[in-house]
Structure formats: structure tokens, C-alpha cells
């Protein structure tokens, strides 16, 4: 399963857009893996947080945009707190989400929540989730 390393895909427009929205450079990362070591959500992720940056460095944004990892990220900032390079990975995750949400790719369906759940769940959970998973903006 050899993957073609396509020089033309490196620093492509979508990756530049991710960097611009996040105000972060993916090339600042030197792949130490500390973010993945600190992330509390890796068991549910299909790609490590450090791999998200790695694929972006290599121009393989398609893999990143197909991964569930940005959608499992809870923006808890453990990654950014330990990063020796000062990369705010949560911002990169947000940018990857934004680019999809802005194309209307919603991740949750409000009508799918049953009434009992909505009565239990605090408003703050629902509103935060709307902000993170719906293209309402």
C-alpha cells in the first residue's frame, strides 16, 4: 500500500486555508508525539492528533478530512499545554471542522435527540455541541 507522495499536494490551498483559519503553521511541529500522549480522547480517534499534523505536512489533507479525529477532539487543550513547539493543535482541529461545517457537513441531527435526553442534558452541552457540530453560523 505505497502512498504516492505528491509534491504538488504539499502546501496545497486547503492546507494553507487550515493554517490561516487556525493561525498556526503545521511546519512548526517536529512530530515528537507529546500531544498524542496527552490527548484524553485518542481511544475514540482513528488518527492520532500528531498524525493529523503529519498528514497536513505531507500534503495528505484528504486523509485528515476523512478522519474522525477532529470531530472527537473536545478542545480540552491538553495538547497545546504540553507542546514543546507552542503549536495550538486545537485550533488546527477547529479549522478542519470549520472547513467542513461551512460546506454544510453537519455532524449531529437535532431532531434525533429524544425528549427525555434533552430534558436531562444541560443547555450548555447542547449549545456547545451545536457550535461544534452544526453549520448554523
Amino acid at each position: 500500500m505505497r502512498v504516492k507522495l505528491d509534491g504538488d499536494r504539499v502546501r496545497n490551498d486547503r492546507i494553507r486555508k487550515v493554517e490561516e483559519i487556525a493561525d498556526q503553521s503545521v511546519y512548526r511541529c517536529y512530530q515528537c508525539g507529546k500531544c498524542s500522549a496527552a490527548c484524553p480522547a485518542t481511544p475514540e480517534m482513528d488518527m492520532l492528533p500528531s498524525q493529523v499534523i503529519r498528514y497536513l505536512q505531507l500534503g495528505m489533507d484528504d486523509k485528515v478530512f476523512a478522519a474522525n479525529t477532529p470531530w472527537i477532539c473536545a478542545s480540552c487543550l491538553q495538547c497545546m499545554t504540553v507542546c514543546p513547539k507552542g503549536v495550538d493543535l486545537a485550533r488546527l482541529m477547529e479549522a478542519i471542522r470549520m472547513l467542513q461545517l461551512r460546506k454544510g457537513q453537519n455532524q449531529i441531527e437535532i431532531r434525533a435527540f429524544d425528549r427525555a435526553y434533552l430534558e436531562r442534558a444541560p443547555q450548555i452541552a447542547m449549545i456547545s455541541a451545536y457550535r461544534k457540530f452544526l453549520s448554523l453560523s
Binding site: 507529546k34 498524542s36 500522549a37 492520532l48 491538553q78
Partner: peptide, 26 residues
């Protein structure tokens, strides 16, 4: 291969959280 993000004591052991970036496993 990977940096360790956390070290703490648990019982009489020292627990550490790391990553093996080569196999892609925390």
C-alpha cells in the same frame, strides 16, 4: 519513539503516558 506527556505516582509505581509515533499508539 515519542515524548512523554505526563508522569505521576500510582500506588508504588510511577505511571507515564507516552506515544509510540512509529506504530501510531499512545
Amino acid at each position: 519513539r515519542g515524548r512523554v506527556s505526563r508522569i505521576f505516582r500510582e500506588g508504588d509505581k510511577v505511571v507515564l503516558w507516552g506515544t509510540d509515533t512509529l506504530s501510531g499508539q499512545p
